[in-house]
Design a protein around this nucleic acid. Sequence first.
DNA 1: TAATTGACTATGGTATACCGTAAGGAATAG
DNA 2: CTATTCCTTACGGTATACCATAGTCAATTA
Lengths: 222, 222
Amino acid sequence: MFQNVLIAEDQNTINKGVERTLNELNIPNIATTQYCDDALLKLKAAFRTDQPFDLLITDLSFKADHRERTLKSGEALIEAVKTIQPNLKIVVFSVEHRIGKIKNLIDTYDINAYVEKGREESIELKKAIHTILEDKMYCSPSIAQLLRNVDDISQTDQYDELLLQLLAKGLKREQIANYFQEKDFPARSLSSIEKRINKLKVLFDAHTSEQLVAIAIDRGLI
Amino acid sequence: MFQNVLIAEDQNTINKGVERTLNELNIPNIATTQYCDDALLKLKAAFRTDQPFDLLITDLSFKADHRERTLKSGEALIEAVKTIQPNLKIVVFSVEHRIGKIKNLIDTYDINAYVEKGREESIELKKAIHTILEDKMYCSPSIAQLLRNVDDISQTDQYDELLLQLLAKGLKREQIANYFQEKDFPARSLSSIEKRINKLKVLFDAHTSEQLVAIAIDRGLI
DNA sequence: TAATTGACTATGGTATACCGTAAGGAATAG
DNA sequence: CTATTCCTTACGGTATACCATAGTCAATTA
């Protein structure tokens, strides 16, 4: 079982709750922190001793408050951690359900578990920890399900992604065409842009381009 | 001090955490539940005994899962509770920061405290409970600040919020107008809808309605 | 080579969104 | 009461989005 676990989570109550769950697993040393910067400091400090942390459980989003912050998100924390202790096991514990974001997280940072916050989260956390101990990856069932279907989404390639981003950034169709002209992209005419947007609307079952943007955001594509 | 407290919160970990916080206040009987319907059953059952609950701490949003639900939100639970035990003290404990919703909650249901989930939530929960014991209302500082600035804005907030939601759901301007006709809302003409959308675009500095929706989602307005 | 296909583009017509103006009515101020 | 202001609505013109059609060109195939 893990010996030294660090919890990074801004919500105080969740800290307490996760701590209690870890108690039930008989983990001897549990540290908690409410800021990413503090988490990194603690990890660094412990890494220099003979008692480094062997597991990090971290949220993704941390609210801003009066304190200055260098690391502003779980992603940033993970990226920083990987440079000093690349073998540290990491569990991401978040409400994030946008599959694009999660897939990116898994692909980029090679995290060991993704647990979605929800009713069964305590049970899932325990499962995740046991699974990691066997050197396997754990993922909440609902998310695992979505990940399997993620190939549908990767059809919408970089081009579509950029197109949706530009829409969400407030560019009109003609402006997008001009932008693509400059970048010398294929399908850079106004006509092609229109067709592509239309294709995306069919693909995502959106009635308007406003809804298209909303869906794209909801799925974490942009 | 309160003797019998019920916690309604779908996130298991938060349940544990709040329970621990209440332990620190030496509250003898703490019950937890992850469903609104169960919460109501427990409240009803206890109300018939000589040990009714004297405090309810409830979240606002409860995720859907396989179970059938009658009560789907904290608001619904509160409304139901008020019919059977109108004097029950209620603490709402939520991440909700849309001031319109919160003001509506306070005005309609006469709740005793609103604690916003965040870094200081445990301390605030304790403060809230102590404040309620003195028969006063407690509100998180950040929310209290916002409430002071919002007198008549809240109505327009609701309206704008719905408008943005309908846009994100793919309704066209005319369909939104029709929807507002049916609901007998003020400013229900196509012209008014257009004007309002335009006002929102100026307010949020959006160039297109697509961007407006994106910004609204980003800020958690919808 | 000739035909075919597919990706891209140009064009024009229709629908919708956008924007300004003005009229009506309710509430408010003088 | 009248004037003013604010809100709502109607209306009309312009811009943009939407949609169908057809043309160009390059690559592929027979």
